[in-house]
Design a protein around this nucleic acid. Structure first.
Lengths: 127, 127
DNA sequence: TTACATAGTGTTATATTATAACAATTAAAA
DNA sequence: TTTTAATTGTTATAATATAACACTATGTAA
């Protein structure tokens, strides 16, 4: 567990409290009162937080969500479910899924160091 | 098999010939000599081509690749391998993988209508 | 403690990716 | 044929992300 810098902490706290994935400029808007004024300050913190696994980027949405797994060792093996109506995003933690994908080898026998999986469908509420 | 409109055909042909995923503005640059002048014309064709499964979007790269499966019924179940050095992208067609993911149910028993999986690693050449 | 490296910050400017809104045209279906 | 849906063309602008540079803080090792 690494200590976060000032900007990283501010931005992580915000994302962590958010019930939904946050976009970079929404983050910027929210932290301006705390002195973070420029997009680059946000993107730098986001990059680092992603790198150390505290947050994940939902690629299909260009948005960021706090890691739900208390021990964030899964930053290299991420899976999410995304509701196509309400846009609710949930991190999937299924050991059988992660085991299957981590061990997946393609035709050429290539094994991968990292993956990101995004499932789409309708959540309970929206069905 | 649906017939493509003029712009859709021009843009599909370009992507289909490309050995690597193409970004929207690279596509725009390449088709300007054929009379497609504006980003929107490109994005509209891309949207349609994605919708009908002729191309896929590589979300982590904001780039587009022609579908490699002759019958493009897998637009709702896509998997790619991405080399983190040379950026080579390959569409994975593994029936066991697609079977596993198509049938995957999360904790709440939720089944998904669609997924996109991106594996990252080093390709043969770059290892 | 000093020096040195590494990581983080602040700032301006700009690049890249994508969509809104509106008018005109073409293709397909009733 | 008429009318409906899909596509096109165009201008403007929104949203997402990075380059480049100067400066500051922090950690580490002599």
């Amino acid at each position: 567990m690494q200590t976060l810098s000032k900007n990283q902490q501010i931005i992580f706290d915000l994302i962590d409290k958010s019930p939904e994935p946050m976009k970079a400029y929404a983050i910027l808007f929210n932290v301006q009162k705390k002195g973070i004024k420029a997009p680059l300050q946000v993107y730098r913190a986001l990059d680092k937080l992603v790198e150390i696994g505290k947050i994940h980027k939902i690629e299909s949405r260009n948005a960021f969500i706090a890691c739900q797994n208390s021990s964030c060792q899964v930053s290299k093996a991420t899976a999410f479910s995304i509701c196509e109506i309400c846009e609710k995003v949930t991190e999937i933690s299924s050991s059988s899924l992660s085991k299957y994908l981590t061990n997946f080898k393609d035709k050429d026998g290539m094994k991968y160091s990292k993956y990101n999986l995004e499932f789409f469908g309708l959540c309970k509420k929206c069905r």
